[in-house]
Amino acid sequence: MKIKGNIVRGNAKTKSGVFAEIKRDYKLNKYLVFFSIPVVVWYFIFHYVPMYGVIIAFKDYNVAQGFLASKWVGIEHFKTFFKSYYFVRILINTLLLSFYNLIFSFPIPIILALVLNEVRSKVLKSTIQTITYMPHFISLVVICGMAYIFLSKGGPINSIALLFGGEEINYLMYSQYYRIIYIALGLWQNAGWNSIIYIAALTAIDITQYEAAEIDGANRLHKLWHVTIPGILPTIIITLILNIGRFMSEGSDKTILLYNEATYEVSDIISSYVYRNGLLKADYSSSAAIGLFNSVINMLLIYGSNAFSRVVNETSLW
């Protein structure tokens, strides 16, 4: 038995290279090869073919000729985009939205987890958890729909504003309120849910550390500051780094639901512009170029942040 195994290994060494290895794999793990085929094919069709299709960013794509036969135009689409008025606008809007998200949506779940951790009654704690996680399961369409109703003329927000002598307006039509609304909706939907990871980290803190601190005469604030926060600091740092890695990947879903022509100057971001220009106006090539520009920056940010987190924490996503 042992000799046979050695021969197999020996063969693979002489016939080095990917194909020899695949062949040997097939012999040893026939079923695993069959299992992997649908998955590999799926990734190929729905991820790698589109990656290849991104060459249309350098072409004048037309539907009749397809990815391959369309005419090359080089970096023409990139030049036009970088020179256009929209480039600066959607770049700044994307960055600002991510920045505000980081300032508000990042710390609040941490605070929520810390405050929840101090609650002694189990029933109260789990009730509050159930309530604060709940909006995460409401669909974005419904959440934005609620925003429309609440913020429209005659809606509850306006009727409260009227009581305080305000003016009745449709808030979603005014640029100055757009970002606040966008961030607030995100917080309402996900602050509770995002606190779970910190709550998990909190439960992992060794209870004897608290006991030791108590013997040393620490009160609850001391314990919070010297035991609890250092205990979840690694989690906070990883989440922060990952958030920075997603700085340019704000999705178009919420924007498409919330924005309108009156607020484009602050609401239009890269992904929504690609959607509008590419799919609604069928301007495929130049939109693919903008998408590629975004994808490359995303890749650098995600890769960089992940490498950084590996250095800082000796843990990474992969």
Binding site: F46, Y52, G53, I56, V274, S287, A288, L292, I302, Y303
Partner: peptide, 12 residues
């Protein structure tokens, strides 16, 4: 890390 983006995916 990297994706073809909305437009190529849509066309595929």
């Amino acid at each position: 890390f990297f994706s073809g983006g909305l437009i190529p995916t849509f066309l595929v």
